[in-house]
């Protein structure tokens, strides 16, 4: 059950990792970060990746249930239970030299957090990184 710092250390152990952070996508705040970030500005990177994550989490094209899925009651009843599972699991952006991998973290309370891993394209393996980040996101919150 790693905390934020232990989680970032483990994210930086993913082959090819250049930088890692935990970001709140509603506010754009980095809750923690390790390694480098594009342009050397953690705050801007957090705000910009948060905007991208927010679009994915909010737009219907990405959040609609797959065909044939059972309609789940969404948040909005009195007491406002948030939907526990994010509809989007992760986002991947590729650039000529790097990958950006953003993995949504699911918590049992109302939150909007994701892990961002910045990866060197030659040294990294996207499929492996995706599995590691999914595992980290799960273990961070398993009670």
């Amino acid at each position: 059950m790693p905390g934020i710092d232990a989680c970032l250390v483990q994210a930086m152990e993913v082959p090819g990792a250049l930088g890692a952070s935990i970001v709140d996508w509603t506010s754009g705040l980095a809750l923690g970060s390790a390694g480098d970030s594009p342009g050397g500005d953690v705050e801007s990177t957090a705000a910009e990746t948060a905007e991208l994550a927010r679009m994915a989490a909010e737009y219907r094209s990405f959040t609609a249930d797959p065909p044939g899925a059972v309609e789940l009651p969404e948040g909005g009843q009195e007491g406002g239970q948030a939907r526990k599972s994010p509809a989007v699991e992760d986002l991947i952006v590729t650039t000529p030299g790097t990958y950006h991998l953003m993995r949504f973290v699911e918590t049992g309370f109302d939150s909007s957090v994701f892990l961002h891993l910045w990866l060197d394209r030659d040294a990294g393996n996207l499929a492996l990184a995706r599995l590691r980040m999914a595992d980290l996101a799960d273990r961070m919150v398993l009670g």
Binding site: M1, P2, G3, I4, A6, C7, I22, D24, S27, L29, L31, V105, T107, G108, F109, S111, V113, R139, M140, V141, L142, G143
Partner: peptide, 20 residues
Amino acid sequence: VESGQLADGELEICHLGALH
């Protein structure tokens, strides 16, 4: 955390949310 009610990560995420 020690009584098993929360993971470290959850506590920190929630705490930082409340703090800011």
